[in-house]
Design a binder for these strands. Structure first.
Lengths: 122, 122
DNA sequence: CTAAGACCTGACATTGACGTCAGAGGCAAG
DNA sequence: CTTGCCTCTGACGTCAATGTCAGGTCTTAG
């Protein structure tokens, strides 16, 4: 498949895919005329990358984790594996922060709703 | 307290506090010489702002929620209240994304660990 | 009084993940 | 063969939160 199709299937822009390749997150085979071609697997990979972005990881960080994705068999990914565990912890921390933000909003919502009810029943 | 103390208590930079004020997230009283002064309450407020930032809200969005924080008593914050509920939903969505990123990393960690064990017991 | 260290405003710099545009070539249908 | 859409590279633009610097003022300990 060509880049446009991968983009629409994975729900990202064509620009983003070229950027991912530039950052070393994604590879493509090239047709003789230079156009990028992808296999179906790449859809999944792009979605995975998106998830990590959503969790606050940067391209640079994701690149460092890729050995664990691409060749979990090599023990040269020892360093990458430690990084993986570390980032997992950071995400966990991040989740806690966001949960506490949600809690704060919930309390705010309750307070406001309580006030509204008081006005309504008045 | 002056800006430096608020910054260190809330764990943010002085620059950020001035930026928050510029964006309408924070107010300060000024001494005759123009220096900003804050009450203890502001520490809590800054922490709250940080939480919302961590949850992915922008300054602009936070400003729109502030009426609910500052005067939950006014019903002119009707619009702000709806926004509040809406953003709560977005955060919820965001949490789900991050959880699925964490799951993805967990699966990756398991796969790598499994491989390592296979090597070790060999 | 004076020196060190906070603070002020205003402005430009930075970073990351893209958007967007220009100019050129590729490809399938009619 | 042309028309319309996709793709290419390269480069510049953007946005938000913050860093950083300059040049000046305040405050406080000694």
């Amino acid at each position: 498949m060509r880049i446009g199709e991968l983009a629409s299937r994975a729900g990202v822009s064509v620009r983003s895919l070229r950027y991912y390749e530039e950052q070393g997150l994604l590879t493509s085979t090239r047709s003789s005329s230079g156009q990028r071609h992808y296999t179906d697997d790449e859809v999944e990979r792009v979605v995975f990358i998106q998830r990590l972005y959503a969790a606050g990881l940067s391209s640079r960080t994701i690149v460092e984790l890729l050995p664990c994705v691409d060749s979990p068999s090599e023990q040269n990914s020892e360093e990458a594996f430690e990084r993986l565990v570390y980032e997992r912890g950071r995400i966990d921390q991040h989740i806690k922060e966001i949960l506490s933000a949600r809690d704060a909003l919930d309390r705010l919502i309750d307070a406001n709703r309580a006030h509204r009810d008081r006005l309504t029943t008045h």
